[in-house]
Amino acid sequence: MSVLKKVNKKIKADNQTGFGANAASYGGRFINKNGTANVRKEGIGFIESISWYHTMLNIPRWKFMTIIFIFYLLVNFLFASIYCLIGVEHLNGISADNFIEKFGQAFFFSAQTFTTVGYGHISPTGFLASFVASVEALFGLLSFAIATGLFYGRFSKPKAHIKFSENAIVAPFQEGKALMFRIAPYKNTNLTDAEAKVTLGMKVVENGIEVNRFFSLDLEYDRINALTLSWTLVHPITEDSPLFAFTKNDFQTQKGEVIIYLKAFDEMYSNTVAIRSSYIFKEIVYGAKFIQMFENNDNSKTLLHLDRLNSYTEVVL
């Protein structure tokens, strides 16, 4: 990261961000666009470093369903192989002429046992086959209990259904200019008491040493009563702003990051939801103005055009 020297030394830095002051720790950005910390943890075993519950709750839906399906197939394949090793003659009702058919019927018997369906067409005989079937039935009950808990956890997990504009902009504001970005709820949720905090992170030189410094950016409004339409967060770039001396060229050539923390109360969850994101300087458009997202229609309703979230026009500053 190149050194930024345009920050007023009288502006107080925020030392409570959790990112540290070591300039060598910067990995391209502090916060990813999806809100996760841009951190990779090493020095510990992979199994120990993973919270499987959090992982299963946070992975995309298609990955979650794929894992459940593959787990189901593998378990039944394993138990079908055990039944074949014991001998399919210990499974009453199997009628097959070759190994493939025997394995296929053992597989479907395993699926019936694992899911505790038990159609009764095939039944185990002998101690060993009966013991394996009872173990599989218990394993199936426990597996479905875990899967049900994960399904419910994913379905009921409080989540802030809020989208950020792809770019932040520097736009005319009052007699000067301001840093702006826009957010909007995109689900049929009711969010109240929305509150935002914005932090600027960049490298500065102190006593000849390059260090990371973070500065709180004051907002025109950092809290609103209800988040029903879009909300444009505005940081006036005044003499008290660390961005005061920045030009268009600075945003294009220097490296820095604007980090946003947002929380709101979701009436449906009856809980506080939180989300965060960031904009590196290259994602800040200098000299632009957002296009309004909402308008009235003929049915006395307000239309919120979510496809305009990142729409802006260029202006001269």
Rank of each mutant, 00 (worst) to 15 (best):
I169V: 10
G256Y: 01
P124I: 05
T192H: 07
R276M: 11
G28K: 09
H161F: 15
V75H: 01
G18R: 04
Y72C: 02
F99A: 13
I44A: 14
A23C: 08
F244P: 00
Q105N: 06
N207K: 12
H90A: 06
L150C: 01
L303F: 13
M293V: 09
R61W: 13
A80D: 04
G45L: 03
P124R: 05
F131I: 01
F99D: 08
S134H: 02
P236G: 07
F109S: 01
F77I: 11
T192C: 05
A145C: 05
A196P: 05
S81K: 09
A274R: 14
L227S: 08
R223G: 07
L179V: 06
F99H: 07
K12N: 10
G118P: 01
S311K: 12
L138D: 02
F251D: 02
S300Q: 14
F127Y: 13
K41C: 11
L217E: 05
S230K: 10
N296S: 13
G87H: 08
V39I: 15
F251K: 02
K203C: 12
V273Y: 03
N38T: 09
S277R: 06
S165P: 10
L138W: 04
E166D: 15
T55Q: 13
A96W: 00
G28N: 08
S165F: 06
L179I: 06
L138M: 07
S270A: 11
I280W: 06
P60Y: 00
T199V: 15
G43L: 08
V234P: 01
A23V: 11
S300P: 04
T148E: 04
T36V: 03
I284T: 06
I275N: 05
A147G: 04
K157N: 10
E283Y: 00
Q254A: 14
L179K: 03
Y26L: 06
A137Q: 09
P124W: 02
G287S: 00
S2H: 09
R308A: 07
I162A: 00
F30W: 15
Q292C: 09
E136D: 09
G256M: 01
G27S: 14
F107K: 01
